[in-house]
Amino acid sequence: MKMTKIYEGAHQWVMFGRDENKPDNIIDSNQYIVRTANKCLLLEPGGTELFAPMMAAVLHHAPVDQITDLFASHQDPDVISSLGLWDQALSNAKLHAPALWEGYIRNFGCESIEYVPIPDNGETIKIESVELQIIPAHYLHSPCNFHVYDPQAKILMCGSVGSAFEPANAPVFVERFDVHVEKMRAYHQRMMPSNQAKRAWIDRVRNLDIDILAPQHGRMFKGDDVKRFLDWFDSLQVGTGV
């Protein structure tokens, strides 16, 4: 599992992904942690198959008892099917996940972890002194979906938006946006069902000060590529990929 520190300040952001040992028939996904002095938030913990390498990777940054919070943008198995294992590993943790999906996500096993439902209009969660904004991203692609914005680190963890599928040796950041576009197009046209929802998200996100766009699959966007991505996504007709 590759680990890349993407922000280092009073707290840290680390991206995990490109697991070379994952089974071929399981899609690659990115996981992130927000590490403060005594706590650790795990964003998009991943699927069951990924649990062991992911947990092992996190142990380079935080002890088990300091993994206090988890976040799931939506209910898909590649996002959160490992919940039942985290549930047995963590003795004092909360899962921040969409209120709408509570009854669904609990199927993965959620007995000791406290499910903290996120209301439709989002909210703010606090990990020690770090305030994270939970931004609504409904229908992108799940009908109830959220992204996480850190105004201090200027990172937007944008879930499925900006996703692409690449081999395990691919770089973690987009290097040539014009080339990368073709890796994203079909996915966004197929998986994002609503131009209206896309427009609402872009309007909301353009008001944020973003250095890094961090999707759940594929490469992250930084610097000018953030605006390039928003412009490209703005002009893309979605819900057409059939």
């Binding site: 990777a57 142990l59 002890p63 088990v64 008892d65 590993a89």
Partner: peptide, 10 residues
């Protein structure tokens, strides 16, 4: 890993 030992309890 720096915190590998913390896995013992789980």
């Amino acid at each position: 890993a720096h915190y590998a030992n913390s896995m013992q309890e789980p």
